[in-house]
Write a protein that binds this DNA or RNA. Structure first.
Length: 465
RNA sequence: GGUGCGUUAGCAAAUCGGUUAUGCCCUGGAUUGCAAAUCCAGUUAGCCCAGUUCGACUCUGGGACGCACCUCCA
């Protein structure tokens, strides 16, 4: 029985889908004006894990992760680069896909781009206006009237009074209420035609919040199961989505709200505005992408995750242990020669499932994998090894050839394979001649290059540190 | 200022009112020419104070510290 921590309820709740055996989930994706950083990597990996677990649990899942390809930052960046919005966003969408692919993140079923759903957004704004929840201000912007929507603040646990007391920003005077937010931004003279759409309120472009509401209901319906995103989107973005969608459709918007924790650097949230971030591609120059994925899944998705080289090094060693267990045990085929999936009746799998069903407790699920690896090491059982690999697959891990991972695991530098092989031959000749000084010299020299030799009955293997 | 979350061994990180988390590091043993890998055994916990309880890391109250949101942000 799957339980999910629902931000809306501030509690773990049993997951009951709206339609039996079906999950419809929406996750706020990226605004594509720059390369993705590790914070983005965490959202992608976490919800990829969620997506995979629902599928492994037998649900039909429709997963939508949007792309914001129109907003102030994009417009500014395009102007700086002297390129079109489309050129800029396409470049970073491509880069995002490269990064996601490297991290083993499966493509969502839909990746809607905001610019392709402007008519739906306009329809929704019209509904809100008809329902008395939106108004056009003197400056031409169409705003949402926060005061008119009962229950504003139910997701973030904030009252309008609290919010008002904490106001830190000068408010545009044309709003009826300082907390009203924009649905439709009127076009500015200086802006390119590319960022202007016609509407009954005049030329303009959509506000950020309406994008997700419109794309969500278009692709998943007015009421769907799960909505996810980073914890920083809880307020105001998700709060505003609820107000818009429920205000327009007059029904519950989302049943379960899921928010992942931040990636931190030196105990501080990694973010664009603080400038303390590493892009995914920077990190992948130094670490194997599977190590990065494993690093993210080693923490519970709601916990903070501190990034440091020491932690990544630690993670690499941990993953080495799992791949080492798989090495040398045939995992190609199960009994009777068929390719085997998870045997869900087996004790380790039951523990794994219990962990995952408990609000996607991946650290606990991974602990089960380490216990299973220990079992594989002891028994050298192909069945156990297959089970380990199959459970790894559920998390998008352990699917490579162990040797390929262990020998390329940290991003390759120095010695090439042929050279290493030659050194091993030379060392084994020295060993046969009982010239251990020479054998040890060769081993030490390789170690200096990050190559560890392992002698076994079957011969000498090597791996990278 | 308001609101929310967190504080577990050297580091990272889970579970749980009473029974070995797990990974890395460390110690001893087995194995090895010596190592590495592996196996076995072991060391190191629960921010502070008070309460509830036969028993609390786990529940309650108070305090300290940290982080986040209240502005664009994954």
């Amino acid at each position: 029985m799957l339980k999910i921590y629902n931000t809306l309820a501030r509690d773990k709740q049993q997951f009951v889908p709206i339609e039996p055996d079906t999950v419809r989930m929406y996750v706020c994706g990226m605004t594509v004006y720059d390369y993705c950083h590790l914070g983005h990597a965490r959202v992608m990996v976490v919800f990829d894990m969620v997506y995979r677990w629902f599928k492994a649990s037998g649900y039909n899942v429709t997963y939508v992760r949007n792309i914001t390809d129109i907003d102030d930052k994009i417009i500014r960046r395009a102007a700086e680069n002297n390129e079109s919005i489309h050129t800029l966003t396409q470049k970073f969408i491509d880069a995002m896909h490269e990064d996601a692919d490297a991290l083993g993140v499966q493509r969502p079923d839909h990746e809607p781009r905001a610019t392709q759903f402007v008519p739906e957004m306009l329809q929704m704004i019209a509904k809100l206006e008809a329902n008395g929840l939106a108004y056009q201000a003197a400056d031409g912007d169409v705003n949402f009237a926060v005061r008119k929507f009962d229950g504003y603040g139910k997701l973030s646990g904030k009252s309008l009074e609290d919010l008002r007391a904490g106001e830190r920003v000068e408010v545009a005077s044309d709003k009826h209420d300082p907390l009203d937010f924009v649905l439709w931004k009127h076009a500015r003279e200086t802006e390119a035609e590319e960022v202007k759409w016609d509407s009954k309120w005049g030329k303009g472009r959509p506000g950020w919040h309406i994008e997700c509401s419109a794309m969500g209901s278009k692709l998943l319906g007015d009421h769907f199961d799960i909505h996810g995103g980073g914890a920083d989107l809880q307020f105001p973005h998700h709060e505003n989505e609820i107000a818009q969608s429920e205000g327009a459709h007059q029904c519950q918007y989302v049943n379960y709200w899921m928010h992942n924790g931040f990636v931190r650097l030196d105990n501080e949230k990694m973010s664009k505005s603080l400038g303390n971030f590493f892009t995914i591609r920077e990190v992948l120059k130094q670490y194997d992408p599977e190590v990065v994925r494993f690093f993210i899944l080693r923490a519970h998705y709601r916990s903070p995750l501190n990034y440091s080289d020491a932690h990544l090094d630690d993670t690499k060693k941990a993953l080495d242990r799992l791949y080492t267990a798989l090495k040398g045990v045939s995992t190609e085929k199960g009994e009777g020669g068929r390719v085997k999936g998870v045997d869900w009746n087996e004790p380790y799998a039951l523990r794994f499932k219990a962990a995952m069903d408990d609000d996607f407790n991946t650290p606990e699920a991974l602990a089960v994998l380490f216990d299973l690896a220990n079992e594989v090491n002891r028994s050298q059982s192909a069945e156990s090894a297959l089970q380990l690999k199959a459970l790894g697959a559920v998390l998008g891990l352990l699917q490579r050839e162990p040797t390929e991972f262990l020998q390329g695991g940290s991003v390759a530098q120095g010695s090439d394979d042929a050279l290493i092989a030659a050194q091993i031959v030379a060392r084994n000749e020295a060993k046969q001649a009982k010239n251990y000084a020479e054998a040890d010299r060769i081993r030490k020299a390789l170690l200096a290059d990050g190559i560890v030799l392992e002698d076994s009955a079957a011969g000498t293997n090597w791996r990278r540190v």
